[in-house]
Nucleic acid binder design. Structure first.
Ligand code: MN
Ligand code: MN
Ligand code: MN
Ligand code: MN
Lengths: 217, 217
DNA sequence: ATTTAAATTTAGACAAATCTAAAAATTTGT
DNA sequence: ACAAATTTTTAGATTTGTCTAAATTTAAAT
């Protein structure tokens, strides 16, 4: 598989094309910052290779082989992210760009050894689950901070937005995975939240709250 | 720079195009298992980018920028090889293929951190020197086993042929870098050598002796 | 000094991945 | 139900890197 093909498969998986759900060429084009006509061309090619089902004017969905392929790439991406953070002291906002390259390295032994070196991690630096060698993975029981009852509390276990800008914002306010977060009150006017984290109170906008995952205990 | 461009620059460097010496398109084509006409096309492109000097019908030589680029790629290749052996338990015959991919990962921070993790190694698993971050590197004082006086002895410090077949042959006969090798006698008929390594005597062909480097003490 | 052989370049073609502009199909609105 | 708007596909072009076959230049041999 070429790098371009792998990127299409991965994107379609992330857009939810893992089951019967059809993903439109427009949605793929927007996500990949390319043109719909390019997506159509690639859809035909990937359908020929039995990686996805392509229904003209309707969209695409991944085949079992496509899903397996996507999980393999995502596994590599997330393991490399863990490696960069744990072994090379990268910050969680720096890893994605490099992992986008490393995920395409072709060597089963390499990624299995990296997995072993890291002691078989279950989650990446952003709280996303890492598929196992045979492709199964358990999505963590979590919910958005914005959807929690008030008052309540939980442990921060993931981020929805993984942009460097958002991650750096969280660093600045000392919000990190594993931290206990208590929701003190919600401001009805703008849905902002007063939270308590690390012994301090903090006011966060709804935009922040809709991008932070917590696990209820 | 594209991957193809990087591979051309690296190959030309290895063929000796670092100085005034002109490397023929044929030599490059043979080394890269491609056609001379393809090399000509690429030579024009790389000359436009000021990475090499191209003289029609004569050959190419790297510019200072080209040399700097080549050293950067070789540095990455060899550091990744050390990483694979030291941190992931790859054998020295397995690393080259994977390093051919990893050498193209674009992240200065990544390779510098790998360098640091490995404690700034000076040589790769095959005894080849690793260029420093600023591009200088010291070729080790070494000579081919076949060119040593008889009798004499030295420490095995490198291999000329780095093919998996040759490396596995050395493993089989327990010849590894760092081992002391004594030359006992040379067979005039076929230039084979009787050597002593690890307390045992061994008869090796001239083909082996012309691919093993030793350092005289 | 010609002729012959070898090396090198040019011309034209092709596959991969992308784009723009135009055509076709689908969806939406009334 | 039908026109308008939107989505999607097709057709044709472009870039990168490669190839084959033919032409050109250089090197070797008589
Ligand atoms: Mn990522
Ligand atoms: Mn991640
Ligand atoms: Mn190598
Ligand atoms: Mn090496």
């Amino acid at each position: 598989m070429t790098r371009a093909e792998e990127n299409y498969i991965k994107t379609i998986f992330h857009l939810g094309g893992n089951q019967a759900q059809l993903i439109s060429t427009n949605a793929i084009a927007e996500q990949m910052e390319t043109k719909p006509s390019s997506v159509t061309d690639m859809a035909k090619k990937l359908a020929d290779k039995n990686l996805l089902n392509y229904i003209r004017y309707k969209g695409v969905s991944l085949t079992d082989l496509g899903i397996k392929t996507a999980l393999s790439i995502i596994r590599k991406h997330r393991l490399w992210e863990v490696f960069l953070v744990k072994k090379l002291d990268f910050t969680w906002d720096e890893v994605h760009e490099v992992a986008e390259q490393l995920e395409h390295i072709k060597s089963e032994k390499l990624i299995d050894k990296i997995d072993e070196l890291l002691d078989f991690p279950k989650y990446d630096p952003h709280g996303d689950p890492i598929p196992s060698k045979n492709g199964d993975f358990q999505e963590r029981d979590k919910q958005l901070l914005s959807e929690m009852p008030i008052p309540s509390s939980g442990v921060c276990v993931g981020v929805k937005d993984t942009s460097a800008a958002f991650l750096k914002f969280l660093d600045k306010h000392h919000i990190a995975l594993g931290h206990e977060i208590s929701i003190v009150e919600k401001e009805a006017f703008d849905d902002s939240l007063k939270i308590r984290i690390g012994g301090k109170e903090l006011q966060i906008s709804n935009q922040i709250a809709t991008n932070l995952y917590v696990k209820v205990e």
